[in-house]
Design a protein around this nucleic acid. Structure first.
Length: 97
DNA sequence: GTGATGACGGAAA
DNA sequence: CTTTCCGCCATCA
């Protein structure tokens, strides 16, 4: 399995699209090892079919700020001031099982 | 091949 | 709680 690089970007997009409505994931989760790369991919995509707004920082803070919060609150994502309630909105489809 | 940068992450103070 | 620093991997010049 094994390709490289290309798979990285592909994997990121797959995970982001796998995020259900009303929930969020973190950059480190969509891109294990290279959280920064995840942002670069999402920024380049910026597509309406790509729920990049469901991707937030590990501490629940937003990258685009109000811009991103707008989409999240509209989908029913629990917010704590300007941060997402990771305890109830974060998805761990990586480990756990 | 080298250097610098980034929609980040975690730890220390 | 906030602020500060280093490390991470991929991309671009």
């Amino acid at each position: 399995m094994a390709e490289k690089t290309q798979s990285q970007a592909f994997e990121v997009l797959e995970r982001v699209r796998a995020i259900p409505e009303g929930f969020v994931s973190t950059y480190g989760d969509v891109s294990p090892g290279s959280p920064r790369y995840a942002g670069a991919v999402l920024f380049e995509c910026d597509d309406p079919d790509l729920p990049w707004w469901r991707v937030v920082r590990a501490d629940g803070s937003l990258a685009k700020g109000a811009r991103q919060k707008r989409h999240l609150v509209a989908e029913g994502v629990p917010f704590k001031r300007d941060r997402v309630e990771m305890a109830v909105a974060r998805i761990d489809h990586s480990g756990v099982g």
